[in-house]
């Protein structure tokens, strides 16, 4: 990692102009991964003065500013009341309070990290991202985008849809990255199923979701649906676990998730 110049603009407008000014210019997030990269940054743009550290409750959604730390999110009463503990659960294994105070939710989500448990959880929560230039898009679309435009993530929008979300993870030790993560949610007849750390970048089980959203889901169907969900992912092996083990975890977690949410 190498930074030529550091700037802390006061407005997003200025920040965006700086970002577009040079190919090597970057927006800084929590910087907890920066050191491990070989990035050569021209102008490092710090948005700390742009007022992006907030959790705002509105009528139909909760907006979380991109510079809000994971620690702020996990201790938010609004988020717990509206969405339950899943988001907190997806974060609390990230080592410690003092690291989660540093990591910002915007940078984490924008990174599309494959190891993340937070991203599949946000996917299951039907989260949307508001960009400075590109406006609002779903996290799902963002995860699928092939070529990302240079832009600034302003906030994450969590829609108040009465969605119940559960997240299940398996890991070798408490603060290790997951071997596999599955998040699932239901709002009325609408289901979202997303997996991460398989070990690829998180994505939805679209085909099975379509089936599940096409009619009522009975608990008895859980095993079959889980089988179908597992069939949608191309699992890989790494030193945390084999593809076979991940598939097995996916089956079990999907079945358990459906059983829990189906009533």
């Amino acid at each position: 990692m190498q930074i030529r110049e550091y700037v802390k603009p006061d407005t997003l407008e200025e920040a965006y102009a700086l970002l577009m000014k040079g190919k090597a210019n970057r927006i800084l997030g929590g910087c907890t991964f920066l050191k491990r990269t070989n990035l050569k940054i021209g102008t490092a743009i710090d948005l700390a003065a742009c007022g992006l550290d907030y959790i705002r409750e509105m009528d139909t959604e909760v907006a979380v500013g991109a510079y809000t730390s994971l620690r702020t999110v996990e201790t938010s009463e609004v988020i717990l009341r509206e969405f339950g503990p899943a988001l907190r659960e997806s974060m609390e294994h990230l080592i410690g309070v003092q690291l989660r105070n540093a990591i910002t939710i915007g940078a984490h989500a924008a990174s599309r990290f494959g190891f993340s448990d937070i991203i599949p959880t946000l996917l299951a929560m039907n989260a949307k991202l508001r960009f400075y230039r590109g406006g609002v898009k779903t996290l799902r679309d963002y995860m699928e985008e092939e070529r990302l435009e240079k832009d600034i993530l302003v906030e994450i929008l969590l829609p108040k849809e009465g969605r119940r979300t559960v997240v299940q993870m398996a890991r070798l030790s408490y603060s290790d990255y997951s071997v596999f993560c599955l998040a699932m949610s239901r709002a009325g007849g609408n289901w979202i199923v997303s997996a991460g750390a398989f070990p690829g970048r998180a994505k939805l089980a679209e085909r099975t979701m379509a089936v599940m959203n096409g009619g009522p889901v009975a608990r008895e169907e859980a095993a079959t649906l889980a089988e179908n969900i597992a069939a949608e992912y191309r699992f890989g092996s790494n030193y945390r676990g084999s593809a076979e083990y991940r598939r097995e975890l996916c089956r079990v977690f999907a079945r358990r998730g459906i059983e829990e949410l189906a009533q």
Partner: peptide
Amino acid sequence: LNGKPMVSCEVLSVRAD
């Protein structure tokens, strides 16, 4: 850092301004 525990090995010094 501003009252919050923080891993200082991950904080760019310039950001402590």
